[in-house]
């Protein structure tokens, strides 16, 4: 007679597994977008460096837009724009596309900075030793410029990893969305947010620390 229906149930060990799975999804969407975005961004950075005026007039303003509009607006805009032009994308697909372009826009500047960090005399020396343009790029610019901007790149990558939390707006169940689902069910927001935060921290902190160490070692 006295039976009551409970809509809420406490936090249990399975929920931790659920959060862990969601953290893997956060990691997956980040790794995918960061790797494609870095390749694209490297290409754009090279274009910006070599193209000079043409690039400054064409791709630079476009990349600038992606840096000047909030990511969340970009995501919503693209998610609602894709069906208009007949693209059938799920939240994951839209998220990857926008995060990739966003990464590329940020990495393009980093990559250009890296190429600029290699001084001209060094490159002339490489060319006069008989290296082709691409050999010079591969064996001189990449190791030296790459080191110079590696910390900046790590910063961008970690930033994108954290910003991937915004894909939850489209309904993709990554870490933050998963924690919201659990909060709705268990009504224990404090505990669950602490756990979700710990997951993010565990993903981001070691990498930023390692990058700082590397930077110090290279600076010597």
């Amino acid at each position: 007679m006295n039976e009551t229906i409970s809509f809420f149930s406490g936090f249990n060990i399975n929920d931790l597994w659920f959060l862990g799975e969601a953290a893997m999804r956060t990691l997956w969407i980040s790794v995918l977008s960061i790797s494609i975005g870095t390749v694209l961004g490297g290409f754009f950075g090279w274009l910006l460096y070599e193209g000079r005026l043409t690039a400054a007039l064409t791709i630079a303003p476009v990349l600038d837009i992606f840096r000047s509009v909030p990511l969340i607006i970009q995501l919503v805009l693209f998610y609602n724009f894709a069906p208009i032009v007949g693209l059938d994308l799920d939240p994951f697909g839209s998220g990857v596309v926008i995060l990739t372009i966003y990464t590329a826009a940020l990495v393009a500047n980093v990559a250009r900075g890296g190429i600029e960090a290699v001084e001209r005399p060094m490159r002339r020396a490489a060319r006069s030793l008989g290296l082709s343009y691409w050999q010079d790029m591969r064996y001189v610019v990449l190791p030296i410029g790459g080191r110079a901007v590696f910390p900046a790149w790590v910063g961008v990558a970690l930033g994108v990893m954290k910003d991937s939390a915004l894909v939850s707006v489209l309904g993709y169940v990554e870490l933050l969305k998963a924690s919201q689902i659990l909060i709705t069910r268990t009504q224990e927001p404090f505990l669950i947010l602490i756990i979700a935060g710990a997951f993010y921290f565990a993903l981001s902190f070691p990498i930023s620390r390692y990058a700082a160490k590397l930077e110090q070692r290279w600076a010597q």
Binding site: L158, K162, A165, L176, L193, G197, F201, S204, F205
Partner: peptide, 23 residues
């Protein structure tokens, strides 16, 4: 400093929004 830099801004907002609601 480390918490602010190593967790998403949205998470921090949620924390102030819902996390403190627990108290």
């Amino acid at each position: 400093v480390e918490l602010a830099r190593n967790t998403p801004a949205l998470f921090q907002l949620f924390f102030f929004g819902f996390g403190l609601g627990a108290f």
